[in-house]
Design a protein around this nucleic acid. Structure first.
Lengths: 187, 187
DNA sequence: ACCGTCTTTTGACATATATCAAAGGAAACT
DNA sequence: AGTTTCCTTTGATATATGTCAAAAGACGGT
């Protein structure tokens, strides 16, 4: 639980009351590799803070499996559009490694938002951080070559190369597995 | 001002007090075509609600002018990373048509966030809507062809074709002007 | 109405990446 | 250890899009 609050601490300093209220809704989960947190086409009812482990968000497009996002220790896994709109979305979430997660349900979070201004602020800041992340990834996809994108990814999270199958990294970068294999072959 | 509050009303129903506090910080601006709301490399100190007119957010990459976002009547123009982080960013904002805008400064907004839980909530919901928009655009860039992206854009906002130069639409779609011209030539 | 500037189209060619196919390796299960 | 399944590499070819260049067209100011 400390790792979760350390993460939260990057965004806001909670008072005792709201901190305890938030702690009270956290659900610990210990799950095996391959476990599905959300099936494609379902509604994302919770977000997951990853204390230990690795997840990916993915979807199927024309029969191909596309990795949309990879979440590592100390970050959050969620199907964001579904979580925010409460509508089904094509994205699913699965564990790439046995993982220890803290779960927060949408309904609990809504209740906390209404009751605690501080937590509403936390929500705003988490969303803001999400926009920044997504915008930066968007810029990369828009105007960096596949080669540059791969270099940036391994610079940011070197361990992924050994933890995530090549095909998943490739679709995350917006290229095919074959192309990534060739990029890799030239350093 | 009504158009601004109509927009806000999509997200949250403000009480009288917070509504008046928000109204009090709105600054109307009437500006000519070509006016620069933010110079590339500057810090985005405000966001702009467009009551009438058209803006684009852009940046320079390797000497090329890239249109990052186009904002039309009834939406918001802002350089989001700079606005949120208070850091300089490569993006600038300019008017593509003479426009009537409502400006909200970052510092006013921060004060309102702290004072009114309702406005903090509004901020959270605006950020959430921003993530959804950006994610959908990201998905398109990732896995729709240039042809599909162009069709979607004109389906969503047909008037843009006549209001925005081709080169700007092309870079917004992530392709060159020549490619877009050719796409257009085949319907 | 004219001139200069900005915008769009068209052409020839180059290149990055995709697709299809098959073989080689590595990991997992019994 | 052996077998199945998954993962990665390599090859040949196809395709979408980019780049460079120049002409044609539209627009705005005087």
């Amino acid at each position: 639980m400390d790792s979760f609050f350390a993460y939260i601490g990057n965004f806001v300093r909670l008072g005792d009351e709201s901190r305890e209220a938030l702690a009270a809704v956290l659900q610990p989960m210990n799950l095996p590799k391959g476990h599905s947190l959300l099936r494609p086409g379902g509604i994302c009812q919770s977000f997951y803070f990853i204390e230990k482990g690795l997840t990916r968000t993915y979807y199927l497009k024309d029969g191909k499996d596309i990795t949309d996002w990879i979440s590592t220790e100390g970050s959050i896994a969620v199907s964001i559009i579904s979580f925010l709109t409460h509508q089904p979305d094509i994205r699913g979430i699965e564990l790439l490694e046995p993982s220890f997660l803290w779960t927060v349900s949408h309904s609990d979070l809504e209740r906390l938002y209404s009751r605690y201004h501080e937590i509403e602020r936390l929500g705003r800041l988490l969303m803001s951080a999400g926009i920044i992340q997504l915008q930066q990834r968007f810029d990369d996809l828009h105007f960096a070559t596949a080669h540059e994108r791969y270099r940036k990814l391994i610079a940011a999270t070197p361990s992924l190369v050994n933890r995530v199958p090549l095909g998943m990294i490739a679709s995350y970068l917006g290229i095919t597995q074959e192309t990534l294999s060739r990029i890799r072959a030239q350093f």
